[in-house]
């Protein structure tokens, strides 16, 4: 089991943070373009899912998987989106994504007066805490990456 990468978007589609661990293939487009493509895909999936659903939804879209990876999605009521790509063996990780939002983003970015909201997070503390948190996850493999 392994974690590939993590995206953090705000409600306007700005990529607040991106980090990768075991990523074997790049999308082949500039990073800025990739963030836009990812946000656009999630935005469309959200509207797709809300139209397709036979019942009223509470949490909405949770995850999708392809033959090689699984994308986990978590959105707060304020529109912050946490997206983590892992391999297929990882089960539901809503609590992990919620922890990244509530214990890392809110504590270290929102409550930090030196971090302007709505643009890429520059805080070194946030980066390092996030990195060590993800590395400590039970499904983060120690395989060389």
């Amino acid at each position: 089991m392994t974690v590939h990468n993590l995206y953090l978007f705000d409600r306007n589609g700005v990529c607040l943070h991106y980090s990768e661990w075991h990523r074997k293939k790049q999308a082949g487009i500039p990073k800025e373009e990739e963030y836009k493509l990812m946000y656009g895909m999630l935005f469309s999936i959200r509207s797709f899912v809300s139209k397709m659903s036979p019942l009223d939804m509470k949490d909405g879209f949770l995850a999708f998987q392809t033959s090689r990876y699984k994308l986990h999605y978590y959105e707060t009521p304020t529109g912050i989106k946490v997206v983590m790509n892992t391999d297929l063996g990882v089960g539901p990780i809503r609590d992990v994504l919620h922890h990244i939002y509530s214990a890392l983003y809110v504590e270290l970015v929102v409550k930090n007066p030196l971090c302007p909201l709505g643009q890429t997070v520059q805080s070194e503390l946030f980066r390092s805490r996030l990195d060590s948190y993800v590395r400590s996850l039970p499904f983060f493999s120690a395989r060389a990456g």
């Binding site: 999308a27 469309s44 036979p54």
Partner: peptide, 29 residues
């Protein structure tokens, strides 16, 4: 729309040789 999402899902893959979306999970379906 799903046809395009399927293609984008495979383009954004962090792993080599991924298919498109095979299973999409929400709380109702």
């Amino acid at each position: 729309m799903f046809h395009s999402l399927f293609a984008i899902g495979s383009q954004l893959s962090p792993e080599q040789g991924s298919s498109g979306i095979e299973m999409l999970e929400t709380d109702t379906f």
